[in-house]
């Protein structure tokens, strides 16, 4: 990590922010299905403090191994002390983001006892932290990738991949349709495992309209962060794409709407809350969060 090359136009603070967002994005990709699993909430509720400390130690060991080989930083750690530092950071990021998502899902509230809160966060952060540990490798498929050889290459190289920037309308339309298709596939892939469960109506029943708007905002921000900030595979390629909705903001909104439609369809297929319409909306928004993450991954991976 300390040998990470800095981009000419990026200061160390911005580079660090991108690395942290990459870590959080990798954790979300890996951990979101379990964040919607009530059995994990329950295990956390009745876990004794001594077990929690043991879990933390057991989590640190594979994370250390991952940080020696993969990790979330732009460069692979080679020194033990760097890997140890990244392990501390990965666990801290996992704990903070997991707690944030559990608050969003109304599973952590001001009335939740401290022991329950700690147990829930720790158990939910296990897959999340492992996702942080493989964040760079998760979508690039190249654990040795560095900023120099892939992440933030200059725009000039992109012409070799995309052709001239002034692509014709047909190519732009194809590119947009490909993104929509990838979003639909990714949203379906993640949403399919969550839509039939009781957790979606359970979580939705605790949310008022204002809270639902918060979930929408967080879903949009997460989708944007994964695709346009985290520096995963093809990120620069995406920034340079042309198409009818290829500007980052427009693409994020349009693909989120596609993820919401997929979420609603999956709820309809599994007969989870079609009536009344207000229920369908709140459940769709709840399922829309993992579906948006799946859609973002789909756009990067396909």
């Amino acid at each position: 990590m300390s040998t990470a090359p800095m981009s000419v136009d990026e200061g160390p603070w911005r580079t660090e922010a991108v690395e942290i967002i990459r870590a959080a994005s990798g954790g979300l990709l890996f951990g979101v299905p379990l964040l919607y699993t009530m059995e994990v909430w329950w295990v956390g509720t009745h876990t004794e403090p001594a077990q929690m400390l043991t879990l933390l130690v057991l989590l640190a060991l594979p994370l250390l191994a991952l940080n020696m080989t993969a990790g979330f930083r732009s460069t692979r750690d080679v020194r033990l002390r760097d890997a140890l530092a990244d392990t501390v950071e990965a666990i801290a990021i996992g704990i903070v983001v997991t707690a944030f998502v559990l608050v969003m899902l109304r599973e952590l509230r001001t009335t939740t006892p401290l022991t329950s809160s700690l147990g829930k966060v720790l158990y939910e952060s296990v897959p999340f932290c492992l996702g942080v540990g493989v964040a760079r490798h998760l979508l690039t498929g190249n654990p040795a990738l560095t900023d120099d050889d892939g992440g933030s290459a200059g725009g000039g190289d992109l012409a070799d991949v995309d052709g001239p920037r002034g692509v014709d309308d047909t190519k732009a339309l194809d590119s947009s349709l490909a993104d929509l298709g990838a979003t639909i596939l990714g949203a379906t892939f993640i949403g399919l495992s969550i839509a039939p469960t009781d957790e979606v109506p359970m979580i939705a029943s605790t949310m008022g309209p204002a809270w639902q708007l918060v979930v929408v905002a967080i879903s949009l921000a997460t989708s944007y962060a994964i695709v346009f900030v985290a520096g995963f595979a093809r990120q620069d390629h995406r920034h340079a794409q042309s198409g009818i909705f290829q500007r980052p903001g427009a693409e994020t909104v349009v693909t989120y709407l596609a993820a919401l439609i997929i979420a609603a369809l999956l709820l309809w297929v599994f007969q989870r809350g079609v009536h009344p319409p207000a229920d369908l909306l709140s459940r769709t928004i709840v399922l829309g969060f993992p579906a948006a993450i799946g859609g973002a991954v789909g756009r990067l991976a396909l």
Partner: peptide, 12 residues
């Protein structure tokens, strides 16, 4: 490590 940037030190 001494070659850690200030941003990395803050994160740690």
């Amino acid at each position: 490590s001494d070659d850690r940037t200030p941003a990395e030190r803050v994160t740690l």
